[in-house]
Nucleic acid binder design. Structure first.
Length: 645
RNA sequence: GCCGUUGUAGCUCAGUGGUAGAGCACUUCCUUGGUAAGGAAGGGGUCACGAGUUCAACUCUCGUCAAUGGCUCCA
């Protein structure tokens, strides 16, 4: 008998050699139907792998990330099986699961594949699924493996096999298709009820542009048709929310070929919105003890040689700017931190002054590869809501907590209800590649972990993800349609204080090195606004939106009344405009709805007589008539609710 | 940067080897209308840019630029 410990801590006894599937059956029929794979003593395996010893077993379903991964990985094999039948001679690279779905890199040789072929492939896949083809694991020797793919002439698999140790190689067979694979997999293809090929793209073998380009087929699959449909609806919704499209429609920003690619231009409405965000953060930062500074957009090359950025990135940056007479060299500022180090160095610092917090909406310029540019999310000029905190090592935790509070306030004010953090720490096996003392790292890493605990922030720890100069904490938000974006960041830096020889006089009257913390709650104004556009679908929170209301006079007769009303609301610090076109009211309402203006104020005979306004809410409809004061209160209350919770 | 795709009016897009069209937007006029499109007339394009082929190029070919889907990169 073997003792199986389930995740809830309960222990069950089974015959030796029992399979996870039998365990699932013994628990409930429903579980047996839905279980995809099992985690036995921390290792994910197939449901048919016998359990020979006492073990901790977790049954994985679609609700587990690891269950999804197995599901998608098997789907990749399913896709490959279909491709092999339809395109004999196709050679296969790798086919992993990704965050949503999976892909397979395939060399089609002389054959070509286009999106027109998707239905054909999907049809073949459906046939394979209904045939309930089992996916069978077989362990093979290296010689066998090489022989098999040698005969098949698949040089990609041969290359992969040549890098594997003998004795660790396994094949998975599904019908006529055999693939080199570590697994694990579903028992057969039948749970894959819905599969959709999403797109085709070129991808270099092993990501190396010097090597052959394969055709990458991206696809997703689900256990239920309904889930696929929902996913496709989400993709449609994402398309509608695309910030590039909405940015144009709402006249927030633009690009000009003459100004240059990747150099966004903020239009008046976008600028208003951005300034409102900046003012909001500035106000909070003031409360949190930050001091604003302003530094130039260029900096002497030596500044960046000292900081180390020139060595690291200089070769792939915008070329230095030179002067005609003195032969000086300046760099377009790629980072604000060296400038802020100069601010720190401006006078001798005492431990009593620390922490010092210098904030700047600093515009930086980075040469991003042209193929990487994307809307506002990847640009060559962007403005960081940057600040650098200079503190003593023992203040790191407290400073992290304070920054986390700022980030929390901001996310809440913008209705990002779902956010989590990633803690990036050193690679424990590779400590020599980091700068700074072991002791300081240890302290800072602990400080970050404890800060997250104290703030009750769900955080995932990633080892080896830290920058060479210090550990960091990144914030991820989940937007309204479930996509994850990385936004704010807090990073410890042991490198720059060293390089710029920053110091303070401690209570012991000795010189000490301060710790520097970089932080940007928004990340960059460009990227943040892009995410905000996609999160809200262009329906910005009331406090932020460029236009809170539009006044719609029923006819020209009420123009004066409308102007008077605008003036009143203007004095109440509400913002909006009047639609003075000689259009019917229905038309004006339609246009205002399409522009996503939050409130429409209809002014006609009735309102003039009663001294009220008739209020209509975007996406909701007629709210009836009320006094101007009441309307102002409605707006202000809503703003207050969002900003002051 | 590399590979693929795309580039026609402010926007969304149709179209052809014989020098261009729709809807929306815009302008003017008519209409003064009560909760998602009132009517009429009009203006607007070197068909991304540059070469080549051709009697003739917006259309075919090549190059450049930009956008876009990926790959690589991201202080």
């Amino acid at each position: 008998m073997v003792n199986i410990t389930l995740p809830d801590g309960s222990v069950r006894q089974y015959e030796q050699g029992i399979t996870p599937l039998d365990v699932a059956k013994s628990i409930s029929e429903g579980l047996a139907r839905n279980v995809l794979a099992a985690k036995v003593n921390g290792k994910v395996v197939e449901l048919y792998r016998p359990i020979e010893q006492d073990a901790a077993v977790q049954l994985l379903t679609w609700n587990d990330e690891e269950g999804k991964e197995v599901f998608w990985h098997t789907s990749a094999h399913l896709l490959a099986s279909a491709i092999e039948e339809l395109y004999p001679g196709a050679k296969f690279g790798i086919g992993p699961a990704i965050e949503t779905g999976f892909y397979y890199d395939i060399d089609f040789g002389e054959q070509t594949v286009s999106s027109d072929d998707f239905p054909k492939i999907e049809k073949k896949i459906a046939e394979l699924v209904s045939a309930k083809i089992p996916v069978v694991r077989r362990e093979v020797t290296k010689a066998e493996a090489l022989d098999f793919f040698g005969k098949k002439g698949d040089e990609y698999k041969l290359e992969l096999i040549s890098e594997l140790e003998d004795g660790t190689i396994s094949f998975y067979e599904s019908g006529k298709f055999t693939d080199l694979c570590r697994g694990p997999h579903l028992v057969d293809f039948s749970p894959i009820k819905a599969l959709k090929i999403i797109n085709l793209a070129g991808a270099y073998w092993r990501g190396d542009e010097k090597r052959k380009q394969l055709t990458r087929i991206y696809a997703v699959s689900f256990p239920k048709k309904k889930e696929l449909d929902e996913y496709l609806v989400m993709l449609e919704e994402a398309k509608k929310r695309d910030h590039r499209k909405l940015g144009k429609e709402l006249e927030l920003f633009m690009f000009s070929e003459m100004v240059g690619k990747g150099l966004p231009i903020w239009l008046p409405k976008g600028t208003e919105l951005r300034l409102r965000l900046q003012n909001f953060l500035t106000k909070i930062q003031k409360q949190y003890g930050y001091q604003q500074v302003i530094t130039p957009h260029i900096g002497g090359k030596q500044l960046y040689v000292t900081s180390g950025h020139w060595d690291h990135y200089g070769a792939d940056s915008f070329r230095p700017i030179t002067t005609p007479e003195e032969g000086e060299e300046y760099l377009l500022k790629p980072m604000n931190c060296p400038h802020h180090c100069m601010v720190y160095k401006d006078s001798p610092r005492s431990y009593k002054e620390l922490p010092l917090r210098f904030a700047e909406f600093g515009t930086v310029y980075r040469y991003e590869q042209s193929g990487e540019l994307h809307g506002l999310t990847r640009v060559r000029s962007f403005t960081q809501d940057d600040a650098h905190i200079f503190c003593r090592p023992d203040q790191v935790k407290q400073e992290f907590i304070r920054v986390m509070e700022i980030i929390e306030i901001i996310f809440k004010a913008l209705s990002f209800e779902n956010f989590e953090a990633q803690i990036s720490l050193r690679d424990p096996n590779n400590r020599e590649k980091y700068v700074g003392s072991d002791e300081n790292w240890e302290k800072a890493e602990q400080a970050i972990i404890e800060a997250c605990k104290e703030k009750n922030l769900p955080a995932k720890v990633e080892y080896g993800e830290a920058a060479f100069y210090g550990p960091k904490l990144d914030f991820m938000v989940k937007d309204a349609i479930g996509r994850r974006w990385q936004l704010g960041t807090i990073q410890v830096d042991y490198n720059l204080p060293e390089r710029f020889d920053l110091e303070y006089i401690g209570s012991d009257n000795q010189k000490h090195r301060p710790v520097m913390i970089h932080r940007a709650p928004f990340g960059s104004m460009e990227r943040f606004v892009a995410v905000l556009i996609e999160h809200t679908g262009g329906k910005f929170p009331l406090w932020l939106t460029p236009e809170q209301f539009v006044i719609l006079p029923v006819s020209e007769k009420f123009e004066d009344k409308a102007k008077e009303l605008l003036n009143t609301l203007d004095n109440m610090e509400l913002r909006g405009s009047i639609d003075l076109r000689s259009e019917k009211i229905g038309r004006k309402i339609r246009d205002a709805e399409l522009k996503k203006t939050p409130f429409m104020l209809i002014v006609g005979e009735k309102e003039v007589n009663e001294g009220t306004v008739s209020v209509r809410r975007h996406g909701v409809g007629d709210l009836g008539s009320m006094s101007v004061e009441q309307f102002a209160k409605t707006i202000n209350d809503e703003i207050k609710n969002l900003l002051e919770r």
